[in-house]
Write a protein that binds this DNA or RNA. Structure first.
Lengths: 227, 227, 227, 227
DNA sequence: AATGAATGAGTATTCATTCAT
DNA sequence: AATGAATGAATACTCATTCAT
């Protein structure tokens, strides 16, 4: 699977009736929102009777969850796979940030769907979508904890808070894009955000100390030489 | 106005009918959510007829916005006032983060209302609430830009992105509290988040400069000795 | 209240909106059955919007129950009042039988409604209709028990069984009328049924006693003659 | 066929697909009611596809009728056979009452099915079930008419009314059992009901007269002998 | 005999808002 | 300021039955 094919996952695009329904729902949900899209709208778009929808899905909400899953799962699978094959802490962090940012800014409507429609739902936290999300955010938490264990990152800061800051930040940025109030260059923002977070986390004191010592010694040498 | 009185703003608590309606709506919205609360529920709670509500508000949504404003405006006023009187960049940043975090974690239901009910609404970005929010986030952007101008902060990083990261992070943390999945110590989280962001933003170039200066001097000394 | 006005009870016919709805529902339920009558049908018949119905009734079922109550309650009130003022056991029995039979055969559609639509409903036995019915059948049970206490009726037979037989019989007769398969003369059937039940219940022991006495005396005489 | 085998009629239990469907339907109808049981439920219980059901039955209603028939027909066959072989009017009456009462109280769910689900159906009176019922009730009418022709029963009372009273009574008693509000001892109730009906029907006046005459004459003889 | 996907009609209920009084 | 009756649109879901395979 290639980065460029986020939404055409080989296996599921067999254009079964199920896929047709999901495709129609994706378009309609993205265009008009979940509440404004009726089962009848979806059925009409597919060209079947209303009742046929229920041969493939048990409820409208299930359709929403599946639409989101089809979009989100490949991103997460890719993230999990690739993060494993990357070496540096910072590298991995940047990748996770960039991937999510890219997915959300390229599909701002699906971003809106997740944030504004799915997440406020009562049973969201028991849904597969929440599971996916947890899988994703766990990847980042683990990278941060790796960084802390390796002594590269300051371990005073709670990794869960870093996760909230990163994904909260991504969501705010993407939400701006989703509501059409801003355009976003995923790569630039990812770099910038990675910098901010990594600098913020880096164990400063020691390196600073070493550096300061080196500078001091240089100064002394210079003084002596001058004299 | 004192920190401890976030929700009893002097001027507006004159217990007029308008205030009674807002008080009832606040309780009901917080308890059952916006959609699940009907105008009838509010009218009944106040003890008036349904129609009477519309003598004071033009729509149900306006009530929501006013409920949020009553909660949010004092926080922002306080932020604007106090931030002005503070000296250090970091100090001001920490204060803004802490105030928002505290407001959201102390009133998780209102936090939920803003994030999950008000913001997804179509006309949210034309509403007074969005204005309030902009006023608030602008405070933070200005502090960051001050820091950048003062040379304290790296100005490679877009202040708007910092704003998204900070408020996105705060919201994620508070949302966890609002949905009852986590308990939050506002002060600790604020400290931690401030650290992360400030460290992330701080200019390293100073030390580079020192180093460069030292090297320069060494070179001069070497020159002179050579001569 | 007079027998002839079973369904025009003074107080309730004020032609309020509520009464209009009940009147329309009565007609429609009687004509097409409960399931086949939609709320829209009723609203249209009254000349109001669908939603207006719910200002007066909480559910379609409540309308059914009220239709039945309006028909049934006066019958029961009358029964309770008049039975009290009657002297003979048999007289009272006949009256109760006749009244129910008359109500059911004069309003066969409402009879059908009670038996075939209301009674099979899940919550029927918790409804006001079941209460009414219990009040009614209790009247008969009490008359039978009075008869048993007075020595007029055989107390070997369970009064509750008599009640089941009487009301079951009435329903079968009335159901035949309701389904249009038979025409019924309430007075003749009431007389006949009263006869059957009273004869069935009457104590025979008296005559046995007389016979035994006579035989005793004959034996005594025979004894004396022998001596 | 023996009384104890009411529901295992030899011929039909060949466990054909048809019988499997009926068995599943019987269980499901009894447990959840006719309306609450879908064709899919039945098909799933049998382990075939929905469409397969229609190879054996033309409609859901036909299944209901067959379920009832399988239960009811043996009872009626037995009644017809045994009533013929019985001598006394009262004996036969008691048997018919007892048999129906026993069937209904032993299978209260099927009793409910007949009374509350099948009978209110529009085409019930054109169905085989109504035929069965007529055959059954005719047996009783004939016994009563035999009694009247033999002079044992009063012929003022319409035999059809007696039928309604008896079966109406049985149904009320059984319905109480079916809805779980009462427990019933079929034999005791049958005896009691038979007593009530027979006493109610017995030609009283003549026999009473004869008896009274006999007693009078005995008294006179005794008097004369004494004197 | 069996499959099982497709049909498509049918409906109770809610509620923000209005307006005549 | 207040009333409160009236509006009326809007919609997910079920299921007996069919039919091409």
């Amino acid at each position: 699977m290639v980065v460029g094919e986020l939404n055409s996952p080989g296996g599921s695009s067999r254009n079964t009736r199920r896929e047709q329904i999901l495709a129609a729902a994706r378009t309609l949900f993205a265009g008009s929102g979940y509440d404004q899209t009726s089962i009848s709208d979806i059925a009409t778009a597919v060209g079947v009777a209303d009742g046929a929808i229920y041969k493939h899905f048990t409820s409208k909400r299930e359709i929403l969850y599946e639409v989101i899953r089809e979009f989100y799962e490949p991103v997460i699978d890719m993230a999990a796979t690739n993060v494993e094959g990357m070496s540096g802490i910072r590298e991995r962090l940047r990748y996770l940030i960039w991937l999510q940012l890219r997915a959300f800014t390229e599909q701002p409507e699906l971003c809106r769907l997740i944030i504004a429609e799915a997440r406020p739902m009562e049973d969201y936290y028991e849904s597969r979508i929440a599971d996916l999300n947890r899988r994703y955010t766990t990847l980042l938490v683990e990278v941060v904890e790796d960084g802390q264990r390796a002594g590269e990152f300051n371990d005073d800061i709670d990794a869960a808070m870093v996760r909230d800051v990163v994904y909260g930040g991504i969501e705010h940025v993407a939400w701006g894009a989703a509501t059409g109030r801003r355009s976003v260059d995923a790569t630039r923002v990812a770099d910038s955000l990675t910098s901010l977070i990594c600098n913020g986390l880096e164990r400063r004191t020691d390196r600073d100390g070493l550096l300061a010592d080196a500078v001091d010694r240089l100064e002394h040498v210079a003084d002596r030489l001058e004299r």
